[in-house]
Design a protein around this nucleic acid. Structure first.
Lengths: 150, 150
DNA sequence: ATCGCAACTGCAATCAGTTGCACAAGCGGA
DNA sequence: TCCGCTTGTGCAACTGATTGCAGTTGCGAT
């Protein structure tokens, strides 16, 4: 079964109309190694379909997100990061100092999700989190605890 | 010690210049019951100081966030929510169905923070998280597990 | 009190993302 | 194959947030 056939099946299952624009957005996302911004998706789709509008890209991404086929995450870069939902969720740690992005295994959020479900009957969307903070290299030595908060 | 004196002390400690605009932004935040949007802060400050510009509000909020005096959170409403940092962090669960906002005790994120520090030497900023998902009332009965992801 | 410097601000332009509207197109039913 | 209806799209305007620039101002040093 080819990728395009998969895309068709995905849209059918989601009861969304098959349009050339959507098929190309799906293709861009599914073939990507990692995250894409809306602008990157737009560029790729436009290469093959010059009539497409950026608002269509956003609408398609929003629809896919609603269908839980795509994650949308603010990675702190200024625009949102989109990614085809993977079988096992993963997350990122993002250092506010050096801006390095580390991948974080789902196990760390999995227990949080279990706790929220058990204690509060809340089904959290924990597909793709970005957690900001500071890595060891960027923390001041002997960080003073005088500041408010942590 | 009055609130204004506190604000002066806060800015001095942060080595930021004392400007009328900043003192008013601080005042708005510290007197707020809960979160405020940038537009709300702007309206309050402008009532007393008509010359202020919205870009100054954003710059001040960014500076305060950098100093960890204010939290900035995307609560999904369309604009960002700002709040004076409290002694004990708190978080929110936000239902994607009914848009109800529940307050979440820090204990749920505290362990996550501890794990990240211990295992990955990463000091996470876990002051004010918004976790999206679905409450019991909005989940379809017997939610099918066929969809990708959770 | 004055001066000079660096930080700060207002303004206008810009950007990423959203939305209303009118027209186009996908597709189910006949 | 055709038709009609509903969904989808392109366009332009809009919104929340950001940024470059020139002028203003807070404040430390004298």
């Amino acid at each position: 079964m080819s990728c395009d056939t998969d895309s068709v099946a995905v849209l059918r299952r989601a009861e969304m109309k098959l349009t050339p624009q959507r098929l190309m957005v799906l293709s861009a996302l599914r073939h990507a190694q990692g995250h894409l911004t809306a602008a990157e998706i737009f560029e790729q789709v436009r290469a093959a379909y010059p009539y497409v509008d950026i608002s269509t890209i956003y609408r398609t991404l929003t629809a896919l997100r609603t269908m839980r086929l795509v994650t949308e995450t603010d990675m702190g870069s200024g625009d949102l990061a989109y990614e085809w939902v993977q079988e096992r969720p993963h997350h990122h740690l993002i250092c506010s100092g050096c801006h390095r992005v580390l991948e974080l295994d789902h196990g760390y959020l999995e227990r949080l999700g279990d706790d929220l479900a058990r204690d509060l009957d809340f089904e959290a969307d924990l597909h793709h989190f970005a957690i900001f903070g500071r890595c060891a290299a960027c923390r001041p030595a002997a960080a003073p605890a005088a500041s408010p908060g942590l």
